[in-house]
């Protein structure tokens, strides 16, 4: 199982949604586009919440496969390790966790701390193959090199044609 690539961790959990709560859950999650709660978990590279109504069946299958509940897929790529990340999730996104996993079957009544973490771990699905274009770069590193790149580019454009002493001076000021 490869849940990791470099220092990045790929977490995936599928939890059954309480019957009748699917629309409410979806509507609630869609609000995250405005509130962006994952910004509170700065170790998160990417995260997604997907509601799976049922298996996708292909007409060529001999028989169909159906789920008896709809499932919430929570998939996140973050800077490891797993345990402390889940702690952060349960803590810093406590209200959202309550609304989201509070609508899932089998979730602890108190959706905080260890009980919720254990619930998510119980529903974790290990990853078979995980690839990353920059496996050793943390979120912080990514953001910092992006800023640096922009800074350097702007500087290079701005200082084009300066004479050597002006250039030196500008460089000292900038970097």
């Amino acid at each position: 199982m490869s849940n990791t690539a470099g220092q990045a961790y790929a977490f995936l959990a599928m939890t059954p949604i309480v019957s009748g709560e699917e629309d409410g859950l979806r509507a609630y999650i869609e609000g995250f586009a405005q509130t962006r709660p994952f910004e509170r978990l700065p170790r998160t590279h990417f995260a997604r919440l997907v509601i799976l109504p049922d298996w996708v069946n292909d007409p060529s299958q001999p028989k169909e496969d159906h789920l008896h509940s709809q499932y919430l897929i929570f998939s996140t790529t973050f800077d490891g390790p797993l345990d402390s990340y889940l702690d952060e999730l349960c803590d810093r996104m406590a209200p959202e966790c309550k609304e989201v996993w509070g609508r899932c079957i089998g979730a602890p009544r108190r959706t905080r701390g260890a009980p919720l973490k254990n619930y998510l771990l119980h529903n974790q699905i290990d990853i078979g193959f995980f690839v990353s274009a920059y496996p050793h770069a943390s979120v912080e590193k990514v953001q910092s090199v992006l800023a640096r790149r922009k800074q350097l580019t702007d500087f290079a454009v701005r200082t084009q044609g300066l004479d050597p002493s002006e250039l030196r001076h500008a460089y000292k000021q900038e970097f």
């Binding site: 990045a8 790929a10 990417f46 789920l67 899932c104 619930y119 274009a133 920059y134």
Partner: peptide, 16 residues
């Protein structure tokens, strides 16, 4: 950026 594949064989039991 990142991609993953995995095989889902069974759904963990949560009382559903």
């Amino acid at each position: 950026h990142f991609a993953r594949w995995t095989l889902v064989r069974e759904m963990p039991d949560n009382g559903q």
